[in-house]
Design a protein around this nucleic acid. Structure first.
Lengths: 142, 142
DNA sequence: TCTTTTCATTATCATTTGATAATAAAAAGA
DNA sequence: TCTTTTTATTATCAAATGATAATGAAAAGA
């Protein structure tokens, strides 16, 4: 197995991952949230609270555009904003209860698809999957 | 390891894959091609020739919008078009030499990043990676 | 033949996203 | 204090994408 062939496999694999995750988060379409806004909400799920600057960095968006999308999310009641008392220039954003429940719905649907995929697999197979995830994460995907 | 925890790992893993591939195809920014147009070119790389309908299906784009983007790619000289003699309603699209070389550049850069990642890994480790790719592809990502 | 269906294209319009300049407020530093 | 830097926001404008109606040409079917 030369590097070239392995690279081709990695490309094909990444393509599969994209396809499946795109399919899994298909449920977002029903919600009143654009793809960029969804990425912001997803980021807020794992890092709360966050400032506009942090979001801009991690979601790869300019600060003015981040500010605009955050305003829209506030208007939709999906997140909350509060000043940072330690540095009053900074604004701290969190998911609102509505935002939490929206993301909960989306993830529940994704997890349901996942459960279907792994239904009927043995304990050993699941452990092999876990090992494979960690191996690829460490060695290939950063 | 319960299903819930494994699902979390899959989500985190997918996120890593997205991040790394996004970084790898960063070179596209320098080329005069939009993200949607890039997806079409990438699809044409693996399936040539293709009709607008097939592209529309696989790239998740309406047929009129597919037609518009194909026209732009033709204007940029990145693909070629020919009627299907067996069914003259159908149009067959292929990458042009310029399109081929563009995709070649992008993939060469991505492969370079990949080579850096796997530099210094032993033959056994590479084989384990290959096995992990196939396992996850078969069991989790479709 | 005549009608219907399929495939592709053009033309619009609305929305989303990206890029940039200008402004304001708070903090940091001279 | 006064100046500079950082953080966030608003306001515009351009470009990309999504959605839909209308049209034409070829194929399929009655």
């Amino acid at each position: 197995m030369d590097h070239n062939a392995l690279f081709q496999k990695v490309v094909a694999f990444a393509s599969s991952v994209h396809e499946v995750t795109h399919e899994m988060t298909r449920g977002v379409k029903n919600e009143d949230v654009t793809p960029v806004q969804y990425k912001i909400l997803e980021y807020m799920m794992f890092a709360q609270p966050v400032t506009p600057s942090e979001i801009a960095d991690c979601v790869d968006l300019s600060l003015p555009n981040t500010s605009r999308e955050l305003r829209k999310l506030l208007e939709k009641g999906l997140c909350k904003k509060a000043v940072d008392d330690a540095d009053r220039r900074r604004q701290l954003f969190r998911l609102s209860p509505d935002g939490q429940s929206l993301m909960g719905r989306v993830f529940a649907q994704a997890q349901q698809g996942f459960e279907q995929q792994i239904a009927g697999l043995s304990k050993e197979e699941l452990e092999k999957i876990e090992g494979a995830l960690e191996l690829l994460r460490a060695k290939v995907f950063k």
